[in-house]
Write a protein that binds this DNA or RNA. Structure first.
Lengths: 339, 339
DNA sequence: GATGAACTATGATAACGATAAAAGAAATAG
DNA sequence: CTATTTCTTTTATCGTTATCATAGTTCATC
C-alpha cells in the first residue's frame, strides 16, 4: 500500500504535485511530471486511503441504508423478499456511482444514528419509517436523506420521500374483488402503521364505495404480531366460511395464507380468493399464480439513490416527493363469482 | 459533531486523558476526571470519527463481502434468493459484532480488490470464487479472508473455506430418484465450474453407482448462459419424453422448470419428477412442494463471519475448513415409480 | 529594455480527528 | 528521601487535502 508521500519522495517532488496529478489537475502540472507520476501510480498500484481522504475532506463517500427492524422478526432482514429486492436495487445503484453502501439494521434508532454519525455518512436512505422515529432522525441528522416507504405526520414533512400509491393499490385490488362479485372480504396486514395502514385505507375506501364496510363488523382484519402468525393463520382458517376473498397487504402474506389454507383442503380460488401486493417472485411461483398489485422495486431503489446523490452533490431537487405507480396484475387466484 | 479536542479544551485537560476515558483505561485516569469527561460525552453525544480513528490505527473496522457477478445476470444480485439470504446472514452476524459491512459486487475482480484496498478493509468474505480469481486475490490481498462456496485448485489452498457437501447433496438427491425407480434423469445447472460442477459430480456418481451414466449419452445436461434460460427451458420441454426426472443444481432452476413444464401441460411429478438444491423459500411455496437438498444458509453466513473475525483478531484457527452438512428433504415433487 | 501583471510549475506547511509513545508532575509508599 | 505508583501532558504520526507562498516564464506597456 504505497502512499502519496512515498511516491513524492521517490520522484523527489512534493506531495502537492502528486496529489494534483491524482486529481487530474493537468493545468497545474507539467506533462513530464504527470507522466512520471502516472508511471509510479501504475507501477505500485496506488489507491487512495479513503480514511485519510475522508478525514481531510470531512465526508465519507458512504451512503447508508437504514432500516428499523424488530430483532426477533427481522433477524435476517434481507432474507425477506421485498426488503432484499429493495436493498439489492439500492446496492446496485450505489455501486454504479462513486459511493459505497453501508447497511444499518437495528431495532434501535439511536444506534442507527450513532453509526451514521461515527462514519460521517454523506447521505441516508431510510426504509419504512414512521412517526416518532422520523422526528428523532430529522432532529439529529442534518445531511441529505431520502425516506422510502415512509408515512409520517405533517410536522416532519419537507424531506424527499419515495413512495408508492399504496392506498390506490389496495383500492384497485379490493375493487377488482368486488367487481368479481365478492362481498365478504377480509384484510391481512403486518401492522397498523405506515405502509400497511395506508393499504388498509385503500381497502376500506373500496368497500365503502360499494356501500359495505361502513360498519366495523364488516372488516375482518388480521395483524400478526411477532410469532403470532401461526395463530393468525389458524384464526383465518377457522373463520374462513365468513368471507370469500382475502386482500393481503403483501405477497408474503398472500402466499403464506394461500398455502396454509390449501394445505388444509380449501380450494384457491374456488373456496377463497386471494389478492396480494408487491408482485414479487413468489407471486408467479405459487399456484394458482397470484393476482396482485405490481410495484417496481428496482425503480424505487434507483430513484431513492438518484435523488439522494443529487442532494449530496448540492443540487436542488425540483419536486419534493416521488410517488410511483402501481398496477393490478390479474392472474389466477381470484374467482369470478358472477360468471 | 464534537471532537476529543473540543472536549479536552472545554475541560481544560489534554486529549490523551479524554481518549483514555473513551477507551475505558480507568487505571490511568482519576475518578473525578472520568466523571467530568463522561458527562461531556453524554452531553454532547460524542461519537468517534471512524475515519480519523481508522487512519491512526491503520485499520477500518470494515468487513467486506465480495462477489463476482456477470453484469447482465446479477444486475440486482441480492434479489437472488440464495445470495440475498446468504448476504443477509452475513449482515446479521457482522451487525452483532463491532464491525461494519460493505458489499462489493462486480464482474471485475480488479475493481473489487481496489475497493478492498482503498477502504483498507480488515477482512474479506468471498462468495463463489474459483480458479484464476482466487489466485489473483490471494496474491494481492494479504489480510484475513474466508472463502464461501468456492472451489479452486490445490495451489491456492490454505485459506479458510466455508462450504457444503455439494457433491453429497446431488448424490443423495439422485440416489433418491433412482430408488424411486427413475432411470432417465436429466441434470440442470447454471454453469460448469465451482459449486455447480461439484453438484454435477455427485449426480454423476450416483448414476454410475447404479450402473448407468457410464456413457456420455446418458447425461442430459443443461447450462444456461445469460439470456438463454428461455431457450434452455424450451429444449428441456422439447426433450421431456426422454427422461422421467430432473435433478437441479438449485431450487431457483427447479422451481422455474417446474412451472414452465406444468404451465405447458406436464404434470409434476407424474410426468416429470423434480428435485432441487438449497431448500429456499420457494421450495415450500411451489406446488407440488419441492423435494430438495436442504442447506443451512444462516449457519454458513455465521460461520464465515465468526471465523473471519477470529482471524482479524489474531486468533489461530484450529481447522482449515468447514464443510456444512446437507440433508434430503422429501416433499411432493418426485413420483415413486415402483409403487 | 525596465516594470510589473499574468501564467506556469512547484513546494512548504498546517489542517482533519484520533492515537501512541514518551516524558513529566504529583501523590503515596517504603 | 529515594522509589514507585498514579495521573496528566507533550508531541509526533497516520495519509490526504487545501492554502499560501515562491520561483521562473512570458508578454504587453510605457
Amino acid at each position: 500500500m504505497i502512499t502519496i508521500k512515498e511516491i513524492a519522495d521517490e520522484l523527489g517532488i512534493s506531495t502537492t504535485t502528486v496529489n494534483n496529478v491524482i486529481h487530474g489537475k493537468t493545468k497545474e502540472v507539467s506533462k513530464a511530471t504527470i507522466e512520471k507520476v502516472e508511471k509510479m501510480i501504475a507501477k505500485y498500484e496506488y489507491v487512495p486511503n479513503m480514511n485519510a481522504r475522508n478525514l481531510a475532506q470531512n465526508r465519507s463517500k458512504i451512503i447508508a441504508v437504514a432500516m428499523k427492524a424488530r430483532k426477533d422478526k427481522y433477524e435476517n432482514a434481507i432474507k425477506d423478499s421485498y426488503v432484499g429486492e429493495l436493498i439489492g436495487a439500492i446496492e446496485k445503484s450505489v455501486r454504479t456511482s462513486e459511493y459505497f453502501l453501508m447497511i444499518y439494521i437495528s431495532d434501535d434508532i439511536g444506534e442507527i444514528l450513532k453509526n451514521v454519525s461515527t462514519w460521517n455518512v454523506d447521505g441516508l436512505i431510510l426504509l419504512g419509517m414512521s412517526g416518532d422515529d422520523s422526528v428523532m432522525i430529522k432532529k439529529k441528522f442534518k445531511k441529505p436523506m431520502v425516506f422510502v416507504d415512509s408515512y409520517f405526520c405533517q410536522d416532519v414533512m419537507g424531506y424527499y420521500n419515495v413512495g408508492l400509491e399504496d392506498a390506490k393499490g389496495t383500492y384497485e385490488a379490493t375493487k377488482y374483488l368486488l367487481e368479481c362479485g365478492h362481498r365478504k372480504i377480509a384484510f391481512l396486514a403486518d401492522n397498523c402503521v405506515g405502509v400497511d395502514h395506508e393499504r388498509f385505507i385503500g381497502y376500506k375506501r373500496a368497500l365503502q364505495e360499494y356501500g359495505i364496510g361502513c360498519r366495523e363488523e364488516d372488516f375482518f382484519v388480521m395483524m400478526p404480531a411477532e410469532n403470532e402468525i401461526e395463530a393468525c393463520l389458524d384464526e383465518l382458517y377457522h373463520y374462513s366460511e365468513q368471507y370469500t376473498a382475502l386482500c393481503c397487504a403483501s405477497d408474503y402474506y398472500a402466499v403464506m395464507v394461500m398455502n396454509y389454507l390449501s394445505d388444509r383442503g380449501k380450494i384457491i380460488p374456488d373456496d377463497i380468493s386471494v389478492v396480494g401486493f408487491d408482485d414479487n417472485a413468489s407471486a408467479t411461483i405459487v399456484r394458482p399464480a397470484l393476482t396482485t398489485i405490481h410495484q417496481d422495486v428496482t425503480k424505487k431503489g434507483e430513484v431513492a439513490v438518484e435523488k439522494l446523490l443529487k442532494m449530496v452533490n448540492g443540487e436542488e431537487l425540483e419536486e419534493e416527493n416521488m410517488i410511483l405507480p402501481v398496477k393490478l396484475v390479474v392472474r389466477d387466484s381470484v374467482k369470478k363469482m358472477n360468471q
